[in-house]
């Protein structure tokens, strides 16, 4: 089942025909099916984050369209987009994006609060996700009292709380150590396997990308190549590194 379709996405910053114009994306097209687990990789400045922002509706493309679950999101206005995002999409950010004044539990339920769900429903959902990601112990702590890995697991729980069909993750392991990264990527695997959601992550961390089923490489605003995972994670990791070497990006794994 088709989940997301990007049709010839172009993004130009600055005046269109002006001298200072920078083309961040030069016509990117790809498709994502339900249950996919895909990473977008590329060197710094290749347009990864721009692409993710456009796909998730945080930014508007200069031309081209994004269709998620049958909705053309570039045609939605600000308010509709906000509602669409919190109902259909989940977000995980590099800097976790948790509210300091809220406890872990409260942070997780914020999207449900906005949806005006009942308290019992919230409680149930929080405990479900907390046990899945092993953060039950810290539910009443504040973000500054817990580790980065725990913060990111909180953010992952928050992203999933409204049962979204599609999860976007922007460098989810960017601020984490290797151990925490492993935990987070295992979480993503769980999301796909146990909750049958679709996950799209943007990363330049080879280790993180190796957990995915498919990696799309972009360079200079265009899709360069893509590889599918067939064998073990280790093999896939080596494959990704080979590809990056061709691309000219970072290849070191810690």
């Amino acid at each position: 089942m088709l989940m997301l379709e990007a049709k010839n996405i172009v993004k130009v910053y600055g005046e269109l025909a002006g001298e200072g114009a920078t083309t961040a994306l030069g016509g990117v097209s790809f498709q994502l099916n339900k249950g996919d687990f895909i990473a977008i990789m590329g060197p710094s400045g290749s347009g990864k984050t721009t692409l993710l922002n456009i796909l998730s509706g945080l930014d508007k493309p200069t031309s081209g369209e994004v269709i998620i679950d049958g909705n053309i999101i570039s045609s939605l206005n600000g308010e509709q987009l906000a509602l669409f995002r919190r109902k259909q999409l989940g977000f995980v950010f590099q800097d976790f994006n948790l509210l300091d004044s809220l406890t872990v539990k409260e942070n997780i339920v914020v999207p449900m609060v906005l949806e005006k769900k009942s308290a019992t429903e919230m409680e149930e959902r929080v405990h479900e996700l907390a046990s899945l990601f092993d953060i039950e112990e810290i539910l009443n702590k504040y973000p500054y009292q817990i580790s980065g890995g725990q913060q990111q697991r909180t953010a992952v729980s928050r992203a999933l709380v409204n049962h979204p069909s599609l999860i976007f993750a922007d460098e989810p392991t960017g601020n984490l150590d290797s151990k925490s990264s492993t935990v987070i990527m295992e979480c993503c695997e769980k999301i796909v396997q146990e909750l049958s959601a679709t996950v799209l992550l943007v990363t330049h961390d080879v280790f993180a990308a190796s957990y995915c089923r498919k990696v799309i490489f972009i360079k200079d605003g265009l899709i360069h190549s893509s590889i599918d995972r067939k064998g073990s994670r280790k093999d896939f990791l080596n494959q990704i590194m080979d590809n990056l070497a061709i691309l000219g990006g970072r290849t070191d794994v810690f």
Binding site: L58, G78, E79, A82, L83, F84, R85, R86, K87, L89, F91, F93, N97, L98, L99, S101, V110, P111, L114, R158, A159
Partner: peptide
């Protein structure tokens, strides 16, 4: 800062 965080997870301007 708080509202920019909230906006990322889908709070509307009206809310």
């Amino acid at each position: 800062e708080k509202y920019s965080k909230l906006r990322l997870i889908g709070i509307t301007a009206l809310e």
